[in-house]
Nucleic acid binder design. Structure first.
Lengths: 152, 152
DNA sequence: GAGTGTTAAGATACAACATATCATTTTCGA
DNA sequence: TCGAAAATGATATGTTGTATCTTAACACTC
């Protein structure tokens, strides 16, 4: 708990960081995984598995099936390279892979952009409420739907 | 903000309260709506629109199409007779209709049961975070996935 | 370097969730 | 009772997610 520093990676650097992180867990950074990560990171808003499948298929001139995309996204989520936005059925690349914490997403109902917030205090409170009810293996889902400033 | 009393309705009483509430908003309590509310309230865990469609169709010996169910669930949600659990793509009856506040759902990954919590302080904090980012028309989605006490 | 086991990815099919559009029925006031 | 408006139905289709089996890539041993 407490403060810590983030590197906000982008582009090459982000992919490199993601790769390093995945390999640290004993997983491989394959061409398909790299392509899917690149596609995911290229979206400015949460992307569905099908969005990614389409983009990657076109970019490589070789079809990637949605189930493959789901498998790889699951792997990414399990290793903190990506997060799933539940209220949008979509995924976002983690811009500081390797740094684990609960996320808060603010999702605009108009433009679809998602803002990613950390609030350790808030998420700890949510965890505590769940723990008090006897829950274990807790995974908070804290999101806010609304209209963002730009779209107001 | 602050404390307030809840009646925890059940069975007939709950449906009556729901009806009163819907009619107060100038909406009608039709047979289909009553049947869908009854079905929804009968589930002990979040029910999908298709679950409800199937149950109601069987119970009445007359098919209710999923889109009708969605329409009516949307109406219920808009009038606080029901809540949508985003991380489960499913719905719960509100056991104290008419009382509006942000909900926190604890959903068990094993048995699917959902516990409904109120924590005004917590949800206000979430709203505040979003407001600070310039969001309006804020609708918090606060859920926790995990394993409940019984399933541990 | 051929054989073998393991992991990754592809193909296919289908299940589950959600909405769009237009037709029909019901309700209710004039 | 007529006509407008609201509610529901029928149908089709779009979107999201999984299950199953097959094939391909890789890595290790002999």
């Amino acid at each position: 708990m407490g403060k810590h520093q983030h590197h906000e990676h982008q582009g090459e650097s982000l992919a490199d960081a993601a790769r390093a992180n995945l390999e640290k867990s004993g997983e491989k950074w394959t061409d398909t995984r790299a392509a899917i990560f690149e596609a995911l990171a290229g979206f400015s808003r949460p992307a569905s598995a099908y969005d990614i499948a389409e983009l990657v298929s076109t970019a490589r001139g070789k079809r990637v099936a949605p189930n493959s995309v789901y498998r790889i996204l699951d792997l990414f989520v399990a290793n903190n390279l990506a997060m799933r936005v539940e209220s949008a059925n979509a995924y976002l690349a983690n811009s500081h892979p390797g740094c684990e914490h609960d996320c808060i997403f603010l999702v605009c109902d108009t433009c679809g952009e998602a803002t990613h917030i950390d609030d350790e205090l808030l998420s700890q409170q949510v965890r505590k409420v769940a723990k008090n009810q006897g829950f274990s293996s807790i995974r908070p889902v804290i999101e806010v739907r609304g209209i963002c400033q730009k779209c107001t």
